[in-house]
Design a protein around this nucleic acid. Structure first.
Length: 421
DNA sequence: TCTGGGGTCCTAGGACCC
DNA sequence: TCTGGGGTCCTAGGACCC
């Protein structure tokens, strides 16, 4: 029997999270900003209706937002992450095979027994999430993930379907594909869209019927897979539980440009520490660390970017080792007199600790360091990130983020619990 | 003044080996 | 005139996603 996928996608997720604790904002225009209050990354339907595009720079839309009384929030990832895991938990309780795809989306592979009953099953899913978490979701159902994405768009856009749309054995399928622009197909970005349009392919239906060899040649196997998926042959697979990620990046744009190496060092220490924490959370260790610094893409004539990689003699997750390596990199690529805007630490060559090969000759300090790192993580978890930090000086942090409109961490910090009056 | 952050996968090309 | 022919592994860069 054919598999059937349901793509469950939270509606305007970050906005819905904010509204959960500010119900008076339902029906009003709301947007959420990226780190540093840089871009608009989530919009309520009312904000979309005002013509605010996804990813728009905040400063360009300030006027419009003010004129229409749009509520603006800085991003609150502690809140969104917590609500996301609650949504995913509800899905997992439905005896389905759940592949979490992003913070606000999951592909649910329907249990065989529910395939004939899929409309009802989806409605039940949707209701459970609403009741237990309070976040509205839309569900698209189809025989491949690419088609489920398209079904989800329909569910979201057309109110009459009440948040659920089913493309399995649907006679309207071709009509819907004909109405879907090719750049709205999952996996087709702007570059591919250009190529396809030049070749006369404008809609999802055109792409479905496109010549496979041509697609393979110009869009590689990735594009060819998309065509197969449009033709109901599933070939994009997702790991249910990825063992551990292949790379970890921690990078930020600074609150203000930095020239001083002292400030840069502090930012780098902080990013390396966060990356090390992420690594330990997965029970993993990394082989290499890469540090990059840049003056930014939109900058004046004198721009400078550089990066450097260190490879460790053996994989590590120790904050002190990673911080030391990052600082060495910084020393060798730092050039004075530039206005730096961003820095980042990237860890790669990641292996889970269990897989690490035994070493014969190392007189490691690992034994003593493990409990230290565990204690560090415990304390920072309990009291908030970076209560304890490596070699930081107190005082100004010109590099730290600007987030002037952040909502409280309602669900993850005892100090910020919502109060019922 | 002001344009995010964190990932994945694929391909081409270089280095190296026999 | 006319450079061997495969392999493998690694890295950088492109494209895409949310």
């Amino acid at each position: 029997m054919k598999k059937v996928f349901a793509l469950v996608d939270c509606n305007n997720f970050y906005v819905s999270c904010e509204r959960l604790f500010r119900p008076e904002l339902n029906g009003k225009p709301v947007v959420v900003l990226s780190n540093n209050d840089g871009c608009i990354v989530a919009r309520s339907n009312e904000a979309k209706a005002l013509g605010i595009p996804m990813g728009a720079p905040f400063f360009k839309f300030r006027g419009l937002l003010a004129r229409h009384n749009v509520h603006v929030f800085s991003s609150n990832y502690a809140l969104y992450g917590d609500l996301s895991s609650r949504v995913m938990k509800v899905l997992q309780q439905m005896e389905a095979d759940v592949a979490v795809y992003s913070i606000d989306e999951a592909f649910v592979s329907l249990p065989v027994t529910q395939i004939w009953n899929r409309g009802k099953y989806a409605a039940e899913l949707r209701e459970k999430v609403r009741k237990h978490v309070g976040i509205p979701v839309s569900i698209g159902i189809a025989t491949t993930r690419t088609l489920a994405k398209i079904a989800n768009r329909v569910a979201k856009k057309e109110a009459r379907y009440q948040g659920i749309f089913d493309l399995v054995d649907n006679r309207q399928t071709e009509e819907i594909l004909a109405r879907t622009a090719v750049n709205d197909v999952w996996g087709i970005g702007s570059r591919s869209t250009e190529k396809l349009q030049r070749h006369g392919i404008h809609t999802a239906l055109d792409l479905k019927r496109a010549d496979e060899t041509w697609v393979r040649k110009h869009l590689t196997v990735v594009g060819a897979r998309t065509v197969m998926e449009l033709n109901e042959t599933p070939c994009i697979s997702l790991e249910k539980a990825p063992p551990c990620s292949k790379s970890i990046i921690t990078s930020r744009t600074f609150g203000q440009p930095i020239t001083d190496i002292g400030n840069l060092r502090e930012a780098v220490i902080s990013y390396a520490s966060i990356a090390a924490e992420k690594l330990r959370k997965q029970g993993a260790e990394a082989n290499t660390l890469n540090l990059f610094i840049t003056t930014g893409l939109f900058d004046e004539q004198s721009s400078y970017s550089n990066n450097q990689t260190v490879t460790f003699p053996r994989p590590t997750s120790s904050t002190s080792v990673l911080v030391t390596a990052a600082l060495q990199c910084l020393k060798s690529i730092y050039r004075p007199d530039y206005r730096y805007r961003k820095a980042g630490v990237m860890l790669a060559g990641i292996v889970s600790q269990g897989y690490r090969q035994q070493e014969l000759f190392s007189r490691t300090t690992v034994k003593e360091e493990k409990p230290l790192m565990a204690a560090l993580d415990r304390i920072n978890n309990k009291w908030g990130r970076h209560i304890i930090q490596y070699g930081m000086t107190a005082g100004d942090r010109p590099w730290s983020m600007q987030q002037s409109r952040k909502s409280p961490a309602y669900t993850t910090n005892w100090q910020e619990l919502p109060v019922v009056k």
